[in-house]
Simulated scan of single mutants.
Amino acid sequence: MKKTVFLGALAIAGVTGTMAAAQTLEDVTSRGALNCGISTGLVGFASQDANGEWQGFDVAVCRAVAAAVLGDPSAVDFTPTTNQVRFEVLNSGEIDMLARNTTWTFSRDVDLKLEFTGINYYDGQGFMVPAALGVSSAKELDGATVCIQAGTTTELNLADFFRINNMSYQPVPISTASEAQQQYLAGSCDVYTTDASGLAATRAAFEDPAGHIILPEIISKEPLGPLVRHGDNEWGDVVRWTLNALIAAEELGVTSANIEELSAGTDNPEINRLLGSEGNLGEMLGLSADWAKNAIAAGGNYGEIFERHIGQNTPIGLARGLNAQWTEGGLLYAPPFR
């Protein structure tokens, strides 16, 4: 089992993004392992099982990238990071990529010099309250105490929502999802706000999930996705097209069950290019011809990953919604593999 490195609330002193030279692919290959930043623990997205192995929707993205580059989905060293230090840890070069329910925003892309490589979950900020509070709308929360993770877009969205609706609130700052759960259940706050997917994941871990309500209001757009450092376009392409491969595989009907058969060649040229039996897409990325095949085989296509970790038949219970394929009324859409 690969090691797990925990980084706390303070960034490593004296390191800057200038250390991130345009050679990450070479570094990962020579190291023989991918350094991937994830959440400190969010059920369904990134959490450890009884054996200490990391599992989840975001973890699966890391494993797919490791499989694409190294041919081994287990060749990952996971670094759990808090909201406060995740970007510093990435820009310092401590990790190669971040796959940690992180919202793509203008300032993070442009000012913080980060490069989002796509969207793997379309989300929005919501509110959770105890059923006993007797609240059915977020517009009834005037004067409430609210648990909020500092250093997130949710902190700013919360202030905007209460200001627009001429309401007051008392923030209760927390650092991690586990701390939010503890404070909320202890009654330190009336409300917990974060991405709706995070609320569903948190509630699923409660002893009495039915005793808590996720209110109907969604107050923001939260496009979540993996990110890398600016200035390393070759590596950005690897992560971007690995995510696209998972999405395209679902659209094209490529699954973990039939991938071996389809990789021998089909009548569909795009499937052939994706799986490496035709064309030279792998060579263009600096990877083997079967890079996408390896990425998809690691955990299945996007739909398989979604259903296994956070879908309606899991304790998280999320419907596909906006995260359905574009052919099914959702927003998922991979550029052509040609």
Rank of each mutant, 00 (worst) to 15 (best):
T176S: 15
T176Y: 07
E179D: 12
E179F: 03
E179K: 07
E179W: 00
A180P: 07
A180Y: 02
A180V: 05
A180Q: 11
A180M: 12
Y184L: 14
Y184T: 12
L185F: 08
L185N: 13
L185S: 13
A186N: 13
A186W: 04
A186T: 11
A186I: 07
G187T: 07
G187M: 01
G187I: 03
C189A: 15
V191E: 06
T193S: 13
T194L: 05
T194M: 08
D195K: 00
D195W: 00
A196F: 09
S197P: 02
S197I: 08
L199R: 07
L199N: 08
A200I: 04
A201E: 06
T202N: 10
T202A: 12
T202W: 01
R203L: 01
R203N: 10
R203V: 00
A204N: 08
A204P: 11
A205K: 15
A205D: 14
F206V: 09
E207N: 14
E207V: 14
D208P: 08
P209M: 07
P209L: 04
A210P: 05
G211D: 09
G211Q: 11
G211N: 07
G211H: 10
H212C: 06
I213R: 12
I214H: 12
I214V: 12
I214D: 05
I214W: 08
L215W: 01
L215N: 07
P216F: 06
E217S: 10
E217I: 08
E217M: 09
E217G: 07
I218A: 00
I218W: 00
I218C: 05
I219E: 07
I219G: 03
K221T: 12
K221F: 11
K221D: 12
E222F: 13
E222S: 15
P223E: 02
P223Y: 07
L224C: 13
L224V: 11
L224Q: 13
G225S: 05
G225L: 09
P226Q: 05
P226Y: 10
L227C: 12
V228Q: 01
R229C: 13
R229F: 04
R229D: 10
R229G: 13
H230I: 11
G231D: 08
G231K: 03
G231I: 08
G231V: 11
D232L: 13
D232Y: 09
D232K: 09
D232M: 09
N233R: 14
E234K: 15
W235P: 01
W235Y: 12
W235V: 03
W235S: 01
W235A: 01
G236C: 05
G236W: 02
G236P: 06
D237P: 03
V238A: 06
V239W: 02
V239K: 01
R240D: 02
R240W: 00
R240A: 14
W241Q: 04
T242S: 02
T242N: 06
L243H: 02
A245H: 07
L246E: 01
A248N: 08
A248I: 09
A249Y: 05
A249L: 08
E250R: 14
L252S: 03
L252H: 02
L252D: 00
G253V: 10
V254P: 02
V254D: 03
T255K: 06
T255W: 05
T255I: 09
T255G: 03
S256D: 07
S256C: 06
A257P: 03
I259M: 09
I259G: 04
I259N: 00
I259D: 04
I259Q: 00
I259A: 07
E260P: 04
E260N: 14
E261L: 14
L262G: 01
L262H: 00
L262Y: 11
